[in-house]
Design a protein around this nucleic acid. Structure first.
Lengths: 389, 389
DNA sequence: TAGGGTCGTGCAAACGGTTGCACAAGAGGG
DNA sequence: CCCTCTTGTGCAACCGTTTGCACGACCCTA
């Protein structure tokens, strides 16, 4: 623990009592400037390092936050974790973490360890636990949940509880649909993953938005195994059906895996089918073809979670739910429908393929943002939109 | 902190003294089975949660490990972190972390916070700090360094200090070169990144291995900006020169960015130039074309680091340096040189492109592992090879 | 039956800070 | 000149465990 020098040593060295030294170091206004300076000088000279355990024991606070992250191998979550840690650090908080791996047992264990360690607050990212259970296990810590958009589609129902941070997936999917419509796509499909509520939210939002645009053709539904994107055959069922003009995928991981699977079958993207992802993982912008997707503010999610937690700790009241805006990033995988481009995969080997098309810069800027960034529901456009559910 | 019940409550409830209760809960052999059971029952009934601060204060240990990770947005490091956390958790240790972002100031601050918190051990992943400085700042904690291969090329010189975990990059690059030679490539280039020692190690290993194979043509050297893979023009200089038959890239991130840049210029991979990466990030295997690369045991790196640290804590002696074996994953980006395939980029738009080639399964298994997994130096083939430098 | 071991438990002292409260000294007001 | 405030500091208790040591009970053996 702290080298060898303790507070009492510093106090002695500065010629004051331990209590005064303690107060001087935390800038207690009752201590005179002279004394404070002397104490600090002594502390510096002796290389005093406070003992957190002792401090925590007495003050009953640890200035430590617990973070349960689902999977750090996933850059998406890694970025959330990073944002969280940075915001925490800036506020003088330390982060202890554990990976939940979508396993309720692991998540519970992590919560227990955190509480035992005396964390002042806990954040759960993409937890699989029931929110009520999570809250009770986090007791007495305030708890913040970072998760995909779980709002049901019925506006007004199921208001977002306080202390929840989520992205505006509804708005994101709306932007995707608007973009596809504008580019001339009409026959659209959705590739879901797993049975997560967020999957249903995205799918149903697409259905709804198509209807909003007066498109008669219903959304065609496809399904990939839960997290089984990489397993052979997980995507085969999808890929071997007759495909629509465009496929909206649950997220980028799925979209990129699908890209690979389609290529294996000679189906060319976007010539035969357009693909859209969600999240804008680092690789999406340099995939071949570059993937049209929705950029989510990952760092920001972590930041907001950490700040909310700290606010809850300091003021005692949990901040209201936060809905973070997202923005469409149009790229190569969804070009405008210009001609009779759309042909069955049979002719695959004869038509010039994607990688042969003339170099085209990331259409991010070229196209401008077609999907007007109009949030759904009460989503504002500021960086952190507070929705008073 | 712990709900409300304290150890004394448990003791009273079980009808024993606090000392006995304390011992019973940690299975002190001096306590009789009957008493132990009674105490545990009482603890369970009262939902006793020990107060870590008090425990830490008295026992002068925290069962906590500090992890400074360079960048969690990077899946490579995320996986290392995950392996670390899991191994730590299995041994009953908790992990607190901070991101260093290749910033010495941040790293120092993190170390200070860790020591203050009383971590029992600290691991630095891809640190930019001088090892000696890091060690002294971690005092009195044992410190483990996880880093790319820093061995100099002169065997016997600069022996690896204890407590270092690294991958066998030398062996990896040798496997790459062997693979390229075997597939018929002779004109080979290396694309470096930054000025890291590991970059030099990989480059010089390639030079050496080519010489070993009796290849006369020297390794051609290219250089990308430090971490500037994504910045426009960072790769332009490379891409616009006359290219060799094959390019070995410092890592996958660079290779994938290069793939994108080349595509933008109409240079086709692997028809015009073969590409090899390093690390085998999740996306390498589904890139277009699928990237030949070297698989590094990321989780294992984290695991080994954590276990080594815990061993150091418990036995007081730092385990010797560890060199983790790596394995080549041959894929589409380096097909055998069969014909007069190799042509200048000029003819780009006329030849059928990669994505049109008939579906080919990941040649990982199809080709078999051509690069015989033969570690260099003292690297063994077991999962964790100890090199007693 | 006394003496020497075990065995199981309890006493009380740490661990190193923070903080409620008392108090001394000096300032200002009546 | 006395009294009341304000300001700055110190005293000592306390946070909740772990742990060195002492001790009583019991079992053997001599």
């Amino acid at each position: 623990m702290g080298g060898r020098t303790r507070l009492i040593d510093v106090a002695t060295h500065a010629g004051v009592s331990q209590a005064t030294a303690s107060r001087a170091l935390v800038d207690d206004p009752r201590i005179s400037a002279r004394t404070r300076a002397a104490v600090k000088a002594a502390a510096a000279e002796l290389q005093y390092i406070p003992n957190a355990a002792a401090r925590n024991l007495r003050s009953r606070r640890t200035r430590t936050l617990g973070l349960v992250i689902v999977d750090l191998s996933d850059p998406f979550h890694g970025m959330v974790a990073q944002g969280f840690e940075m915001a925490a650090g800036e506020a003088g908080y330390t982060v202890i973490f554990a990976s939940g791996l979508s396993d309720p047992v692991r998540e519970r264990r992590a919560l227990k360890v955190f509480v035992e360690h005396g964390t002042d607050g806990i954040a759960l990212v993409s937890s699989v636990l029931d929110p009520r259970e999570a809250r009770s296990r986090a007791e007495p810590d305030p708890l913040v949940l970072v998760q995909p958009d779980h709002r049901t589609l019925m506006p007004g129902r199921d208001p977002l509880p306080d202390g929840v941070v989520q992205t505006d997936d509804v708005g994101g999917v709306e932007q995707i649909v608007d973009h596809l419509i504008e580019r001339g796509y009409r026959d659209i499909g959705y590739v879901g993953a797993g049975v997560l509520p967020s999957n249903a939210v995205r799918r149903e939002t697409a259905v709804r938005r198509l209807r909003h645009h007066g498109v008669r053709r219903p959304l065609r539904r496809f399904q990939a195994g839960i997290e089984g994107y990489r397993s052979p055959g997980a995507l085969a069922a999808i890929v071997q059906q007759s495909l629509p003009e465009a496929l909206i995928c649950y997220d980028d991981k799925l979209a990129l895996a699908l890209l690979d699977a389609l290529r294996g079958l000679g189906v060319r993207v976007p010539d035969h089918v357009a693909i859209v992802g969600f999240d804008d993982v680092p690789f999406a912008s340099i995939a071949n073809p570059r993937l049209t997707t929705v950029t989510t503010p990952t760092h920001e999610m972590g930041r907001v979670a950490a700040r909310g937690l700290i606010q809850a700790i300091q003021t005692g009241t949990m901040p209201p739910a936060t809905l973070l805006p997202v923005r469409l990033a149009p790229r190569e995988s969804t070009p405008p429908v210009t001609s009779a481009d759309r042909r069955p995969p049979a002719r695959a080997t004869t038509t010039p393929s994607t990688s042969t098309t003339s170099p085209r810069p990331d259409s991010d800027s070229a196209t401008g943002r077609t999907g007007r960034p109009r949030g759904s529901a009460g989503a504002a456009l500021s960086t952190t939109a507070m929705v008073h559910a």
